[in-house]
Nucleic acid binder design. Structure first.
Lengths: 177, 177
DNA sequence: TTGACAAGACCGTCCAGCCGGTACAGTAAA
DNA sequence: TTTACTGTACCGGCTGGACGGTCTTGTCAA
C-alpha cells in the first residue's frame, strides 16, 4: 500500500504545521504528526531523527518560503522598493484568518534557540531595508508595525478589524513612500 | 521551617515566571514551580488546584500589573495623553534585557484560549486611545509598532540595537505628540 | 536478461521516564 | 478548631525515542 518515492519530508512538515494550528501548539506530538501525515511513527523518525530536527525543518522551510515570497514580491513591485513588498506580503499573510505558524510556539517550548535563525533573518532584512531609505526613524516605525501585525496574526488576535488593518497597511505604504 | 503567613500565591506566580524565563517555557512543570517557590507540591496544588488555574493566575496578575503601571504613567504624563504613557511604559519594559513573560508561551501550549483576556484588554486599550486622537492611521501605526516592540522583547529578540530602539521610541512619541 | 544484493524508505511495537493530578497523614500558627 | 500548609507515596497516561523487521528500488556482475 505504500506509495513509492513520495516526498514524505514536505508532507510531514505540512502535517506538523496543520496539527499545531488545529490542535494547538501544545499538542504537537510525534504521534499526532505521523498519523496526520499518513506515515508511521517509524517513518517519521526516519525522516526526522528527533523532534528537534523536525522543528528545525519547520523553521528552515518557513524561512525559505518567506524569502522566496519576498523576492517574488520585490521583483513584482520593482521601483517601489523592498519595504513596500514586505508590507504587502505581510498584509496578505495576515489576511488569512488562521495563523499558519502556530508551530513556532511548539518550537519555542522545545528550545527557544530555534528562533535564532529567524532573528538573524529579520536582522538581515532590516539591514537591507536600511540601505534603501535615508529616514531611519520612519523605517523603524514601519518595520516594527509590520512586526506587530505579524505577531498579532501569530497570536490569532482579532484585536484589529478588517477596516483597521486596511487603514494600517495604507498608512504604512504612505510612510514607506 | 515554614514562614508563617507568607503570601504564597504571589511567591508561586513569581516562581513560575522565573522558571519559564530561565529554564524555557517548555520546562514549566508543577514540580519545577513548587521547588522554585520553596513550596511543596501539595502546597502548590493547594493554592492552584490545577495547572490551568496557575496559568490563569499568571495572566490575571500580568494584566493587573500592566493596568496599574499604565494608570500610574498616565497620571504622571498628564496632558501628554495615554498613548505617550503606553509608549514610555512599553519602552521601559523592553529595556529589561530578559523577557519577563515567557510563561505566556507555556500558557499558549496549555490552551490558546488563555490569551483571550489579554486580547480583550488590548482591544479595550485601543478603543481608549481612539477616543484621544483624530488621526486613526497614525494611531494604528503607533499601536502596532508598540506591539511589535513588545513581541520582539517577548521573543527575546535582539534584532534592534539600543540606539535603534531609542530612535524608534522618539519617533513614536513624535507621531503620538 | 536476469538474479543477487545493498541501500533507501518506511512500518509497528515496545519501553523508560516524566508529568499532572490524587490521597492522605502530620503539623504549626491563628 | 480551623487554616494553611508540608511531605511522601502513588498512579495512569502520554511522549520521545530505540529497534527489528519489511517492502521497494537501484546497481551490477554473470
Amino acid at each position: 500500500m505504500r506509495i513509492p518515492r513520495a516526498n514524505s519530508r514536505e508532507k510531514i512538515l505540512a502535517a506538523a504545521a496543520d496539527v499545531a494550528r488545529e490542535a494547538g501548539p501544545g499538542s504537537l506530538s510525534l504521534d499526532a504528526v505521523a498519523s496526520r501525515a499518513g506515515v508511521s511513527k517509524g517513518g517519521l523518525l526516519y525522516n526526522f531523527p528527533t523532534k528537534a530536527k523536525l522543528m528545525q525543518g519547520l523553521v528552515e522551510s518557513y524561512l525559505s518560503d518567506f524569502q522566496k515570497a519576498l523576492e517574488a514580491r520585490a521583483i513584482e513591485a520593482g521601483h517601489e522598493g523592498v519595504l513596500s513588498a514586505y508590507i504587502k506580503l505581510s498584509a496578505d499573510d495576515c489576511e488569512r484568518p488562521k495563523p499558519s505558524a502556530s508551530w513556532m510556539f511548539s518550537a519555542i517550548a522545545e528550545d527557544p534557540d530555534f528562533l535564532t535563525p529567524i532573528k538573524a533573518f529579520k536582522r538581515q532584512l532590516f539591514e537591507r531595508l536600511k540601505g534603501e531609505t535615508d529616514d531611519l526613524g520612519s523605517l523603524l516605525v514601519c518595520f516594527l508595525a509590520i512586526e506587530g501585525m505579524r505577531s498579532m496574526n501569530l497570536f490569532d488576535s482579532d484585536v484589529l478589524s478588517e477596516d483597521e488593518r486596511r487603514l494600517l497597511v495604507s498608512s504604512l505604504l504612505k510612510i514607506a513612500g
